[in-house]
Design a protein around this nucleic acid. Structure first.
Lengths: 357, 357
DNA sequence: CTGTTAGCGCCTTCAG
DNA sequence: CTGAAGGCGCTAACAG
């Protein structure tokens, strides 16, 4: 069937030159005569030669395989699919290929795929770490000189590069939006206080309310699990307050969905009787609650930037850990009643607002 | 930094055995003493040894790299993201890794990534071909003994395995559904008649109407571009018919959306004044028109099956081209007014119906 | 500018 | 059960 793979030596023979010459042609060296180069190329095409990167890679010591690994925790989530597309774009045009694996939040799966990728000699790794990922998990990689870029979720202790979205600025813009609609008592709902992401978002909230001259009131910060159920719980507590808030920014979209659930079960229509803004870390908002106003991130942009950062480090040889935060923007949707974030009194209509920084 | 990659010879030395012994341990051979095996494994862990598949692959002639390539035309579309996840599942648990690339319907991109994948020695390829893909495009691969499985879109001339959804059965169930609601004149709207997919779907439509005793009337089959605009055009013609239909099955979801557009511009509410069923080849229906009743495919299942088929062929050595069609199911949604497919007179409510075969 | 000579890390005989 | 050679396809020095 397969006529024993055609190698450089075959084409060298056929072209009447030596293997080194062929090798030089392969790497586009300028040390080779134009005529011979053309000849060699022709022969390669005729014989159907395919370059064997495995062999090349073997020879060039710990050199570049031109493979970059990408591991995400849920490709089913369009957020990560977009991320992967962003990575693929820059990776492809740089002549690399990507290994893409899904962990489904399983730390074991993650370890397996990363190990497998290493065996295949990836020259870099982009990872959105599964929940329980240990900061030390990627140490062996960086020790081996393989750059790692962590995206979306930061990994506190790890000495690797990372890209996360600008949580603080996102919350500031969300609060500003609500304040602009006339809200005076805005709650911060959901999320566990022991995470860096929570801290960032809460800080943004605080900056926002203070900038709007509303003051920061601790009782308006109600933490809960960062889930739909947590949202239901949080809004319950918020409504039970003496001075009931009229609006809320939520830790993430899941919480926002729960908050809407909780409101409806109390005969309050989200967006009409109570303004809700989500945080679109998991961009499915559009599908789940078409008109929820949220702070949106640009996953594809994160992917592109992450890949660029990684390639830079790969080319530089040494990986200088670097941290970057990407901009987010407030997206106000009003196609459905549930999307209005305005209180009954202030029926101001905002079409779509971009928030700088 | 990097202490010159640790190799089998290093660990052999440290464990006081020969490289061959280490090699045997690596492949889990039973020819090695339990004690020495343990020792070797310990040393490997201590020295942080990582298996070099590139080298192994080089030695083992045209053997298996345990890499399978996956190329899709739009990972942004959740249909393909799900497909990729399905592939990843079986591929991962079989100890393979996947190269995943996006072509964005660009035939050039596709050729590039496939070439790149070949250079890396993939042992198999799963591809949802970009629009203009030539049937001969994958010949070199199969000639080289690399199995190829085409999914979602079939490639008429190509002698490769393929998995497409059961277009015929899907249409049969859609028509059956409408007939069950009392519709007598059901149109088939959209699609270009010169494609295999169209033929399959039309055949299903024909089977359906005939089985329901409605007879097949050619004037009810109105082709158009398989796009939203095409849908608008098609419904326009349908409404202009002497005996106007009361319902329609559409070539795909895009057409269905256009049909809805066309109906609304004529003050007809889809699902109330005219029943519409889409064909969910591009599953975004849920996001775009939350309540459209459609024939849904299971992309993740296709991915899993495709991967299994591929692995089978890889293990079998020889690739016996094989064709498979996967089941689809009719999903009736009624969360929104637009989702009802029932005609005004017959207000029958169907929650969700599974269609066998 | 082109040819020769060594290996890269691993696996496979083939003897011990 | 273990050690000693040889070579996979390619590139990296050096010679010519």
């Amino acid at each position: 069937m397969t006529k024993a793979r055609v190698t450089v030596i075959d084409i060298a023979k056929a072209a009447g030159v030596s293997k080194s010459t062929v090798s030089l042609v392969l790497q586009g060296s300028s040390l080779v005569n134009e005529a011979t180069r053309a000849k060699v190329n022709t022969v390669m095409r005729d014989l159907g030669y395919v370059y064997n990167r495995g062999a090349a890679n073997l020879r060039q010591a710990g050199a570049k395989s031109r493979i970059i690994g990408v591991v995400v925790n849920d490709l089913t989530n369009s957020f990560f699919a977009e991320l992967a597309v962003g990575v693929d774009m820059v990776v492809q045009s740089a002549g690399f290929v990507q290994f893409l694996s899904n962990t489904g939040e399983s730390i074991d799966r993650q370890r397996e795929v990363v190990a497998s990728m290493r065996e295949h000699g990836i020259s870099g790794l982009i990872v959105s770490p599964a929940r329980a990922t240990d900061a030390a998990d990627f140490k062996p990689l960086v020790a081996a000189g393989i750059p790692v870029v962590v995206v979306v979720r930061n990994l506190p202790g790890a000495k690797v590069s990372s890209i996360v979205s600008d949580n603080r600025a996102g919350m500031v813009s969300a609060v500003k939006h609500l304040a602009g609609l006339g809200h005076k008592r805005i709650a911060f709902l959901g999320g566990f206080p022991d995470t860096a992401v929570f801290d960032d978002r809460l800080a943004g909230y605080r900056n926002g309310v203070e900038a709007a001259g509303l003051g920061y009131h601790e009782e308006l910060v109600i933490s809960s699990a960062p889930s739909r159920a947590g949202g239901v719980e949080a809004i319950g507590k918020a409504i039970a307050l003496g001075l009931r808030p009229t609006a809320a920014v939520c830790f993430n979209d899941a919480v926002a969905f729960g908050v809407c659930d909780g409101l409806r079960s109390r005969r309050l229509e989200p967006g009409v009787d109570f303004a809700v803004v989500g945080f679109d870390d998991v961009i499915e908002a559009q599908a789940a609650v078409p008109a929820l106003t949220t702070v949106s991130v640009d996953p594809q942009g994160i992917g592109r930037r992450g890949a660029q950062m990684l390639l830079k480090q790969i080319n530089a040889g040494k990986a200088e850990a670097e941290t970057m935060t990407t901009a987010v923007r407030l997206v106000v949707r009003e196609s459905c009643g549930a999307g209005k974030t305005a209180p009954a009194k202030a029926g101001k209509s905002v079409k779509s607002k971009q928030d700088a920084e």
